[in-house]
Amino acid sequence: MKVLFSCIFILISIHFYAQEKPTLYLIGDSTMADKKNPEENPEHGWGQMLPELMTNKITIENHAVNGRSTKSFLNEGRWKTIYDQLKPGDFVIIQFGHNDQKINSPDRYTNPFTAYRYNLEKFVNQTREKGATPILMSSIVRRNFNKFGTFVDTHGSYPLVVRMLGKELDVPFIDMQWLTEQLEEKYGEEDSRNLHLHFAPGEVAYYEKRKDDDTHLSKMGATLVATLALKEIAKKDLDLKKYIKNQTLKKQIL
C-alpha cells in the first residue's frame, strides 16, 4: 500500500511540475551578472541579455554576482537559496573562473584541480538531485592581445578543468572560452575594444575618469556573448533549445 501511495505521489508531482513554467537559473560572476541602472550604465553581464533572446515560456533568474567564485558563492549561501527551490524541469547554467583564480583573495581563491573542480561537481550533482539540468560553461575570455597582436588567454587551467568535468560527469558543456576567443579575434585588437568598456574621460556620463576594462562587457559585447551561448546550446540540441527565440538562432555572429 505504501508503494502504491508513493507512486501516486510521484505521478501527481510530475503532473504538477509539468504544468509549471520551468526556470533557468544562472550562477556565476560579474561577466554574467545583471547590472544596475542599465539605461545609464554601459556595463552589462551577458546573462542580463537573455530575456530579450529567449521566449516568455521560461522564467530566467540571474543569481550571478560581481566578484564571486565557486567558493564564495557556496560560503555565502547563494547556492543553497537556489538549491532549495530547484524543481524537475529547471535548468542551471554554471560559469565560474574569473575570481577562483584570485590567489591573493583567500575567501575566493580555489585550486583549479581540487576545490574548483569539487565545487563545480557539487553544483552539478545537487542540480541533478532535484531533477533539474546542469549546463557547465567555461569562462568568457578577457580581451588580451600581446605586442604582436596575438590573442592570449588569461585563465590558465580553469577552463580545462570544466571541460574535463563535463566529459567525466556527462554534463552538457558550452565552451565559452573558445567561442569568445573567436569573437575577440574576429573583431581584432582595436575593434574588440567595443565589446568591452573603453571610454575617454567624460565620454559617457556614467564614468568621470578614463575607463579601460577588458574583462567586463558593453551592451553590444554582452548581447553577442549571450547569442553565442544560446546558438551553441541549440547546436548541441539541449532541451533548453526550445525556449530560444528563432530570430536569435538566425543571427550570424562568427
Rank of each mutant, 00 (worst) to 15 (best):
L120T: 05
S192Y: 01
K251Q: 14
I93K: 01
F151G: 09
V152D: 04
P134E: 10
K245M: 12
S192N: 09
K235A: 14
G45D: 10
S138L: 10
D100H: 12
E203D: 14
V92D: 02
L165P: 06
S138H: 11
F5S: 02
P172A: 05
Y83S: 15
I27M: 02
I233Y: 00
L165C: 05
Q95E: 15
I14H: 04
V162R: 06
R142W: 05
W46F: 15
T59Y: 07
G67T: 11
G149N: 14
A115D: 15
Q247D: 15
H216Y: 11
H63Q: 13
V171C: 14
L179Y: 03
T248V: 11
Q85R: 15
T31V: 13
R78I: 00
N41E: 04
F96Y: 06
L217Q: 04
V225H: 06
D191I: 04
N119L: 01
G89I: 11
A234K: 08
K245Q: 12
A18M: 03
F16L: 12
T81S: 14
D84I: 09
E39N: 13
K245N: 09
N104S: 15
G28I: 02
Q182S: 12
A18C: 09
D107Y: 00
P51Q: 07
Q247P: 01
T248E: 11
K102S: 14
K219M: 04
D84A: 15
L183H: 00
K186T: 09
S139D: 10
T23G: 07
I140Q: 07
V161W: 06
T215F: 05
F73H: 13
T59Q: 11
I174A: 00
K236M: 03
E184Q: 12
S139H: 04
F199R: 08
P112D: 07
A226Q: 03
L197E: 05
R78D: 13
L240E: 02
K231R: 10
S105F: 01
P106F: 04
L50V: 05
R210L: 02
D107N: 12
D153W: 03
G89K: 00
H63A: 14
F5P: 00
M220V: 06
H198W: 07
K130C: 01
D213N: 12
P88L: 11
N144W: 02
R163C: 08
Q19A: 13
N104L: 12
R128A: 06
E189I: 11
E20A: 14
L26T: 10
L195K: 03
H196D: 07
K102Y: 10
Y109E: 00
L179T: 10
L53G: 05
N125Q: 15
